[in-house]
Simulated assay, not measured.
Amino acid sequence: MQEADPPPPEDRVPSLAFGGAPTIRDVARIADVSIGTASKALNAGGRLSQETRDKVLRVAREIGYRPNDLAQSLHRAKSRTIGIISNDSFGRFTFPIVEALEERLAEEGMAVFMCNATDDPARERQHLDQLLGKRIDALVVTARRADKRPPIGPRAHGLPVIYVFSRADDPEALSLLPDDEGGAMLAVAHLASLGRKCIAHVTGPEHFEAVRLRRKGYRSALAEAGLPEIEGFYLSGVWSEAWGREAAARLFSRSQTPDAIFCGNDQIARGASDTLREIGLAVPADVAIVGFDNWDVMVLAARPQLTSIDMNLKALGREAGDSVLEMIAGRKLSGVRRRPCSLVVRASSKP
């Protein structure tokens, strides 16, 4: 007589075929508990024995049950999702911020939806409506520049909103920004500490707030070091290597030339370095150079590699995550917070 197959072990859920995705009813039936008990176990709520909770979670895992996030969000009045609206289509500044923000929120079991508005107000409104339709718990607004912008609008009334690397023209809003002025002071103080006496500043368009703040830091650091601000040593143009090359050529066509250049971004710094090499000057022996942004693509590919100011965008993104969680919990946060930059020294300004 053929022996019967042994019964499945108690810790093993029988293989089942479902006509659709497994439901909480399937979990409850297989675990031999009520739907209410299954719900409490799956949502880490209620008063249950650890044995019952573990059993329900094991059954859910083995049959491939996934909770209905939308239904849970309606039940909790929270979706555990955050919306992000950006106009930084290139992603140079947004990506490090979003990466750190997402990592911080993931620690709390939260996810993000990101939309790109590309400086189009109509598209921004459309994205906002879509995000609100997903019942997001908070909104983060970021950009490719930190200039002031209109507030996100009345449709987000009551929703926590944080501006990161973007500044709302609203005293009640919370804006997290890098300290451009302080970063410039770090750069110029570093050059002065190397014994450089004639420090030029080549930067981008003056209608950017960051440009104005970095020039202010440049002037303050010169004054603190007891160095003169030499006429003609400040040049404002565009954010490009071509402008860096042109500006350096202008500076070295003068009778008085600089022994150091603080550049408003790394592209300008790399262009300036190219011109110095072409006219036979050595970096840093003849002229030291410091850039701004610490963009790997630029600073590491330059010859020599560029010293630069790092805006610590990942730290800014992580702080945004902390602030989002605080605001969701009910704390009111507002004002402009500027976070310190740091100096990364490389060959272009080594002693």
Score class of each variant (00 low, 15 high):
Ala4Phe: 04
Asp5His: 02
Asp5Ser: 11
Pro8Lys: 03
Arg12Asn: 01
Leu16Thr: 10
Ala21Tyr: 05
Ala38Met: 00
Ala38Leu: 04
Ala44Leu: 01
Leu48Ile: 01
Leu48Gly: 07
Ser49Val: 05
Asp54Trp: 01
Ala60Leu: 07
Glu62Asn: 04
Ala71Thr: 07
Gln72Glu: 11
Leu74Asp: 01
Ile84Asp: 07
Asp88Leu: 03
Phe90Cys: 12
Gly91Val: 08
Phe95Glu: 11
Glu107Asn: 09
Asp119Phe: 00
Asp120Glu: 08
Pro121His: 00
Gln130Ser: 13
Ile136Phe: 06
Val140Asp: 12
Thr142Cys: 11
Pro154Met: 03
Asp169Pro: 03
Glu181Asn: 10
Ala184Tyr: 02
Leu191Gly: 15
Gly195Ile: 02
Ala200Asp: 08
His201Arg: 09
Thr203Pro: 08
Gly204Val: 12
Gly217Arg: 11
Gly226Phe: 03
Ser240Pro: 06
Arg245Tyr: 09
Asp259Gln: 11
Leu281Ile: 02
Ala282Glu: 09
Asn294Trp: 00
Val297Gln: 15
Ala302Ser: 15
Gln305Tyr: 00
Leu306Val: 07
Ile309Thr: 09
Ile309Asn: 13
Lys314Asn: 10
Leu316Asp: 05
Ala320Cys: 13
Asp322Gly: 08
Val324Asp: 07
Arg338Trp: 00
Ser342Trp: 01
Ser342Leu: 05
